[in-house]
Write a protein that binds this DNA or RNA. Structure first.
Lengths: 135, 135
DNA sequence: TTAAATGCAAAAAATTTGCAGACGT
DNA sequence: ACGTCTGCAAATTTTTTGCATTTAA
């Protein structure tokens, strides 16, 4: 898909089929662990090696192209970098979803209280998702 | 210290010198990684094994006695469980500090938007601490 | 007394590295 | 053509496990 090629080309790393596969996978599933990515990509791309997934995740993180999402009780997941947002995690099924929340006030308050110069915010809310609540 | 013994005794795990050492260390330093804990405790308690630290961290987490704090770009740290709070991390020196922020509104909004039943909130703010800003 | 905890060594899991050949630009 | 990337195997690092012995209650 042209879309991803252009995105990748903007950073200074080469566009390889393996990298495109990672990006496409993340675009489809949004949040995946290294192992999930590896297993998913192997289906379409059996020769890919786990080391390549690691190397590329690290390279693309250095480029700021993807980001790590640390969630309680799970392995880290990765997502394409987009505008800042928060996450909700279902403690029953493990699903991770994006959510757009205004953290202006909270961040301001934090800066005042701590005297830190705040640069990044990571908010992860854990609970039960609608479909798990139903069952 | 009697204080910690009583705390530990409340949960259903045995009070051992190794566990007391972990708790005292965490009470003093607030946020430590497994390796930091191990190295610190070894000084006062040279016979302790890394496996024991792991086992005890896991046991005490199951008891809800301590909690894992996942911070961007660092290994997980652990803290004694106390009333809910947020964290600020200095991206320069790596220090992690507690901060008391009101997340009521944000949580409410999140519940409305996501239809999740929210149970836990983990907010980690990253930035530059006052002393690193000075230098 | 006895169930649980310790420490050790070994195993398993997760991540990184080195390198020869392949590939993107 | 050049420098980067891939895949493999090996090396590290991190975490868990099994077991004989010790220890807390």
């Amino acid at each position: 898909m042209q879309k991803y090629e252009n995105l990748l080309r903007e950073s200074k790393i080469k566009v390889t089929p393996q990298r495109l596969a990672i990006v496409e996978e993340l675009d489809g599933h949004v949040h995946m662990s290294i192992e999930e990515l590896y297993e998913a990509i192997k289906k379409k791309f059996p020769s890919i090696s786990l080391a390549t997934v690691y190397k590329n995740i690290n390279a693309m993180m250095e480029q700021g192209f993807i980001q790590e999402v640390k969630v309680p009780g799970q392995k880290s997941k990765y997502e394409l970098t987009k505008k800042p947002h928060s996450h909700v995690v279902c403690e029953s099924c493990g699903k991770v979803e994006d959510i757009d929340l205004d953290l202006e006030k909270v961040t301001h308050r934090a800066a005042n209280l701590s005297h830190y110069e705040i640069k990044e915010k990571a908010l992860v809310l854990t609970g039960i998702c609608p479909s798990c609540k139903a069952s």
